[in-house]
Amino acid sequence: MFAPKVDAVRHLDELTRGLDLDAFIVYSSAASVFMGAGSGGYAAANAFLDGLMARRRAAGLPGLSLAWGPWDQATGLAETMDDLTLTQMSRREGRGGVMALKPVEGMELFGAAVGSGQALLVPVKLDLRGVRADAVAGGGVPHLLRGLVRLGRQQAQAVGVGGDERRQLSDRLAGLGAAEQEALLLDLVRTQVAVVLGHAGPESVRAETAFKDAGFDSLTSVELRNRMREATGLKLPATLVFDYPTPMELARHLGDELAVDKASPADPVLAGLAGLDAAIESAASDEEARDRITVRLRELLKAAEAAGGSDGTEGTADASDEDLETASDEDLFAIFDRLN
């Protein structure tokens, strides 16, 4: 890439400096400004053209670099690309807020740029509606488009800011059992994987299929890490999909990192017992009511011991069956208080 871009234009610049030119126009790429992820050499070569035109302008010479976005055509470089490469580029450009230019649109932009007097222009076709939709789905807004994309209140809440994502996700997980938490996190991972790979929905993503077998490369791996970081508020490494190579393993890792307490089957039972205090106290003056309550408490205690395979020595506040048989009402209430 450096030979046809950097070397060629550098020589052309040196050999024409003594000529009276009306224009000196080079074709750069939007990758030199943004959208350059995964194309470091290409982005750097085009950035050289941008810088050289700025230097020519500073020296009083004509110079214009057009950092083109993608064109919708099957000639030139695009002629040698296979369908898979073109599909991946299309998905990537779409998520970056850029659509392909029709030839007539490109020619109109070229005509407008020639007389602009600028050293660098970026003729691209922006898809700001797509950027908004992607942001709501959990993706980030490209930095250079944040002045153009205004999110509504509901959209901003959906995107989240800073640690809000982690708090919102933790709130959703709180009170769920272990299986439900895992299911929610797995659905989150599968949804983001589907977006990165361009699937119609998370149902196309299998929980146990390795990311590398699903089509991930280094670029899409980093993109998934970024999207998961946005969605969870966690600090996640760039090697995330290599460290946790399936959606299920990644979901379990997120659960460990979020460290949300899992609901216990005992929680509703204990909550119900806590509400008995006032009821028992109100019935304490009625001897018949106390007797009925005592019998029922004994039945519940025996049922709990039987369900847990207990021999009666645990969970009874050190009270034996004989003690319970001979205990007074006050003793039983004291045992209940200690259990509660």
Results as ranks from 00 to 15, higher is better:
residue 192 Q to R: 06
residue 1 M to F: 15
residue 249 E to D: 09
residue 170 S to M: 10
residue 288 E to K: 07
residue 35 M to I: 03
residue 42 Y to I: 09
residue 136 V to N: 03
residue 179 A to C: 06
residue 123 P to K: 04
residue 65 S to C: 15
residue 301 L to A: 04
residue 61 L to E: 14
residue 142 P to S: 05
residue 113 A to K: 01
residue 299 E to H: 11
residue 295 V to D: 13
residue 112 A to Y: 08
residue 111 G to Y: 02
residue 261 D to M: 09
residue 35 M to L: 07
residue 288 E to Q: 13
residue 138 G to I: 10
residue 12 L to Q: 11
residue 160 G to Y: 10
residue 129 R to C: 06
residue 74 A to V: 05
residue 105 E to G: 02
residue 43 A to G: 06
residue 9 V to R: 00
residue 179 A to V: 13
residue 324 L to G: 02
residue 23 A to W: 10
residue 128 L to M: 11
residue 329 D to R: 07
residue 190 R to M: 09
residue 179 A to I: 13
residue 309 G to F: 07
residue 275 G to N: 01
residue 194 A to D: 09
residue 57 R to V: 08
residue 118 Q to E: 14
residue 160 G to E: 07
residue 223 E to F: 04
residue 329 D to G: 12
residue 104 V to A: 15
residue 250 L to A: 06
residue 225 R to P: 05
residue 76 G to Y: 11
residue 10 R to C: 09
residue 46 N to Y: 01
residue 7 D to I: 15
residue 144 L to S: 08
residue 308 G to R: 12
residue 293 I to V: 12
residue 339 L to W: 07
residue 7 D to G: 10
residue 81 M to Y: 15
residue 1 M to H: 14
residue 89 M to I: 08
residue 49 L to A: 13
residue 122 V to D: 00
residue 283 A to D: 02
residue 243 D to M: 12
residue 286 D to E: 09
residue 47 A to T: 01
residue 197 L to F: 07
residue 79 E to D: 15
residue 239 T to K: 09
residue 145 L to Y: 04
residue 325 E to T: 06
residue 118 Q to V: 03
residue 218 S to Q: 12
residue 210 A to W: 00
residue 29 S to E: 04
residue 35 M to T: 05
residue 68 W to Q: 05
residue 289 A to T: 03
residue 178 A to E: 13
residue 152 G to I: 05
residue 191 T to K: 05
residue 300 L to S: 12
residue 18 G to L: 15
residue 56 R to H: 14
residue 242 F to T: 08
residue 247 P to W: 11
residue 22 D to Y: 11
residue 57 R to N: 08
residue 16 T to Q: 11
residue 303 A to S: 15
residue 31 A to N: 05
residue 240 L to W: 00
residue 26 V to F: 01
residue 29 S to K: 02
residue 196 V to R: 00
residue 170 S to T: 08
residue 83 D to C: 07
residue 253 H to L: 08
residue 29 S to I: 03
residue 75 T to M: 13
residue 181 Q to I: 12
residue 73 Q to E: 14
residue 37 A to G: 02
residue 214 A to S: 10
residue 92 R to Q: 10
residue 172 R to D: 11
residue 294 T to L: 07
residue 252 R to V: 10
residue 320 S to L: 06
residue 212 K to N: 06
residue 230 E to S: 14
residue 262 K to D: 03
residue 146 R to K: 13
residue 173 L to V: 06
residue 153 R to V: 14
residue 35 M to V: 14
residue 116 S to Y: 02
residue 148 L to I: 08
residue 50 D to H: 04
residue 253 H to D: 12
residue 208 E to H: 08
residue 264 S to K: 13
residue 219 L to C: 09
residue 14 E to F: 06
residue 129 R to I: 11
residue 164 D to H: 08
residue 119 A to D: 10
residue 265 P to K: 08
residue 224 L to A: 03
residue 307 A to F: 12
residue 4 P to N: 15
residue 259 A to H: 14
residue 214 A to T: 04
